[in-house]
Design a protein around this nucleic acid. Sequence first.
RNA 1: GCGCCCGUAGCUCAGGUGGAUAGAGCAUCUGCCUUCUAAGCAGAGGGCCGGGGGUUCGAGUCCCUCCGGGCGCACCA
Length: 713
Amino acid sequence: MLTAIQKWQKALSEEIKARFGLELPPDEIPFTFPPKPELGDAATPVCFSLARKLKRPPQVLAQELAQTTLDGVRESRCAGGYLNLFVDRGWAIESLLGGRFVPKGWRGKTIIEHTNINPNKAAHVGHLRNAVLGDTLARCLRYLGREVEVQNYIDDTGVQVADVVVGFERILGFGPEQLEALLCIYERFATKDSQAQGPMDRLQEWLQRGGLSSPDGVFAITEALRPILADPEKSNLAYGWLVSSKGRFDSFCWELYAKVAHWYAEDDSRLKARHETLRDIEGNVEPTSTIAARVAEEMVRCHLRTMERLHVRYDVLPHESDILKSGFWQACFDKLKAAGAVHRVPDESGDKNRGCWVMALSEADGFEGLSDADKVIVRSSGTVTYIGKDMAYQLWKFGLLGRDFKYRLFPNPLYRVWRSSSTVAGADPPSFGHGESVINVIDVRQSYLQRIVREGLKLMGYKAQAEASVHFSYEMVALSRKTALELEQRKEITLCEEDRTKPFVEMSGRKGLGVQADVLLDLLEERAQEEVSGREPELPKEEADSRARLLAASALRYYMAKYDKNQVVAFDFDQALAFEGETGPYLQYACVRAENILRKAAEMGIAMPEMSGSEAVAKALGLMEPEGWGVLALFLRLPNIVQQATSSLDLHLVARHLYQAAQAFHAYYHAFPVIQEPDPQKREARLLTVLLFARLLRSSLQELLGIEVPERM
RNA sequence: GCGCCCGUAGCUCAGGUGGAUAGAGCAUCUGCCUUCUAAGCAGAGGGCCGGGGGUUCGAGUCCCUCCGGGCGCACCA
């Protein structure tokens, strides 16, 4: 289905051909929007370029083109060479309210892969940008009528998980029982803060508050942890993290993971532990493989919970371990070999890649000037690299592998989500994969690898799928210098000399450098809570909490969505914690204000206007002030904005546009009182403006940006 | 060395395929709450759009070049 502008472009293209004998494709007819609403609802400067080709003044051409009949346009005027269009308001409102965009011309689904946090530590603010962009893209595509499947890839076999397992086994001396005991504490105890007294007292208290007052439960846990508690060094470490993690297992692992990196750095020979652990995980050697699986699963649960706070959900969680166990890599490897896309570097050669299977990139477009033209796919040890697994995964996403996972439900208390499995199949999973196009949301640092995956597909003969493989590349989130120095002062992070001189500090899970997503969300909710209770002290706590959550989520989502994707976000606490100015709450507030007027009007017994169809509506629309109409007209452009945003992956366009709409409404709100307006007809027109605005903004925020609006704030 | 990205107000950023007077937010200053919630509005100051060349009716936007900064180019993911 064509949007209004596309229809106009088509009609104008035909008119230009008929009138001037000039072929001008519809999408080459530019559309802009007049700076003032009085000038019209839309405009095209096309006559400027026509003027050159036809050697006639643009004003004259615009006069002629103004004769064109355009769908929904009641008047075309020319002004200084521009062709300005005034739409029929009734038509515009009808199409806004009724016209969901019918999915024509789009068959097949789009697979979006996003989030992809290594399941070995808590999510940090960088991961939030990924998730927000991925989720916003999914929402925008669904708004346009596309079928979307959201996948969150879980790398549960890599070095990162291995490292945290090393931490549990070798630094803390944990086995499966101790891990279970720890998880049990986390499961029962989910409150945020505590001030430690004596370690054992505290543990007992936590256990009791967590509903583990049954002596057996406490006994079981303390029994399991006894060997750890007997060792002061281990028990101090674990206890410290237990406290600082504020009830979150992923936060515990965040500390543990950073500790492991430090532990390696102290003594190189300790890296042996990493390799042994990695080997045991892959070889299903107990207890290591159980610990790894348990840690990864629990971590994914933590991440799902974190993302749920931002209203981000997933359809399926493909696990890397299942890619290996289900023979995906083998099938992919066979295809690569059959196509001659990879070759083995002989053992006896002097090449540094001897014994490896490599993909030659020297012939490929866009890989010129590499220091090494060969990319290792299979290591000399016979194990496959990340890039190989990723190629197999990409093939599966397109349904090209000839294999599928089994699926079972992931143990998630929040909503139904499936995960891959190599062995156990749950009841009636939907069909996953078989995408027509695939969008991988990964930060810019992985561009090179994403290009290799595409190149691999091409070499295997899947040219169309290589074309349909999109890397949604965005810049990283770093800590602003100000924020980094603040955090260092509070002893939450440690910076090296080099970091201190840089304009911003790159985050690093390994170095424990970053701001945890949940910590930021907690801060946001706290601040929101203060604001809410400052305004309505009488509000029941539950209601206040729920409002604070919506405010915090919207502040964060808008903060992550408003920047151009190529812009490094220098994360700054002051900016991220703001609720004023260009922020999520500002958008919500516009909606709440509009709804307040409606509520008040209803309380006063003023009838709500019809929104479409009747004579009265047409009349009210005609009586709207240009400013009021200007607010609503912004929503007319929304479908085009969303379309452009999704095709260029510039999602900030959507965020900024809705901000602009909110801004326009706030100004209107102050200038045009509704309830106090004595003239009933004017009042009717204003009420209709407010009603339509409230409807449109609320649904747009929710559908496109994943921002929910509270009833009041 | 090669490749990609960024440089616009004191700070953080917008400025779709070149078009109407370069805009927002924060910060600073001045007004506006007995009038639909001030998480707001109105206004002021603040700009050689990194520098220099070009392309044309028209360049913040396109091309070349230089300068400054970031990120990639692993048998890590």
